[in-house]
């Protein structure tokens, strides 16, 4: 399935990721955590396919387990003491549960960020901040162009070194390090000297004149408005829930959850809707295509 959510206006996608990331970090309620974890997992698989599943199971899961275990070892707050460690510190039910919750939270954040990285490409970021911080976003754009160029140049230099009989991948650690430094040093000279021409080209094209504008190829269209509106509504609902205390739970000194009611269920549904928004949009688009194809 091709991702349609990432074709939305950068303002929409950026707001979305900011919201889900902040919500995931703040809302430690079990339902909220589950919803966030589930939605981020689904979207990351949708975006990155099998690779995402393997990464999630192979690296993320053990990390989360480790984090869940480590918390009660150092955090001894809580009233429900289960047993004592050898050094005399108590292990509490609260700290175990908090460890699990924190691990879940961290997992959701990492997963959301992996989606963010796939959707918010550098040009979108530069567009968003081009007006606000023009000089720095230009630096960013230049650096992003230079990094692959320099990496390629490092390759070319190391081949050229082999061509005069200096094999860079052989030898012991010290020799390798020396070769690497030699190449890095050559690349630095090359980069700095050649950048002078880049500065000339910028000056020649009027960089530094007052009143510089920032061009973009993005347009905030009706679809963006609709999605943005829906997003804002959902966020408002979720924040109302947060203000009422439905989205968090108290871990210390003792566990405390507000009892669920119709309102809180509504808030959780809103959270679920927000979290699965990209997946919903993508699925709707897929169905639309199927329909158009069948009508042909």
């Amino acid at each position: 399935m091709k991702d349609v959510f990432s074709t939305l206006h950068p303002v929409v996608t950026f707001t979305y990721f900011t919201a889900v990331l902040l919500f995931s970090m703040c809302f430690m309620h079990p339902v909220c955590l589950t919803v966030s974890l589930l939605c981020s997992f689904l979207y990351s698989v949708l975006l990155r396919g099998k690779k995402a599943i393997r990464f999630n199971l192979l690296y993320l899961l053990p990390l989360l387990l480790f984090m869940a275990v480590i918390n009660p070892a150092f955090n001894h707050a809580g009233v429900t003491i289960l047993f004592y460690l050898k050094n005399g510190n108590p292990v509490t039910l609260e700290s175990i549960l908090y460890g699990i919750a924190a691990a879940g939270m961290f997992g959701a954040v990492v997963l959301w960020f992996s989606c963010y990285n796939a959707v918010m490409t550098s040009d979108k970021f530069i567009y968003l901040f081009g007006r606000l911080i023009p000089a720095l976003s230009l630096i960013l754009s230049m650096a992003l162009r230079f990094v692959p160029r320099y990496k390629a140049q490092i390759q070319v230099i190391s081949i050229a070194q082999q061509g005069i009989g200096r094999d860079v991948s052989n030898g012991n650690i010290l020799e390798r390090a020396r070769n690497g430094l030699q190449i890095l040093s050559m690349m630095t000279t090359w980069a700095l000297e050649n950048a002078i021409e880049t500065a000339d080209s910028m000056k020649s094209r009027g960089y530094g004149l007052p009143g510089r504008t920032s061009f973009s190829i993005f347009r905030f269209d009706r679809r963006d408005k609709a999605v943005f509106g829906a997003m804002l509504l959902l966020m408002a609902a979720i924040l109302t829930g947060a203000a009422a205390g439905f989205n968090t739970m108290r871990f210390f000194p003792s566990l405390k959850l507000l009892p669920p009611n119709a309102f809180s269920l509504g808030v959780y549904c809103a959270y679920l809707a927000l979290g699965s928004l990209p997946v919903i949009i993508d699925t709707a688009e897929e169905l639309k295509w199927k329909r158009i194809k069948s009508e042909l």
Binding site: L138, A195, S201, R212, F215
Partner: peptide, 19 residues
């Protein structure tokens, strides 16, 4: 290579006009 400033073709085309 040295004359190109930004990382995207569209941005490069617009660079002078932005200035």
């Amino acid at each position: 290579d040295n004359q190109i400033v930004t990382d995207k073709v569209w941005h490069e085309l617009a660079f002078g006009l932005e200035s």
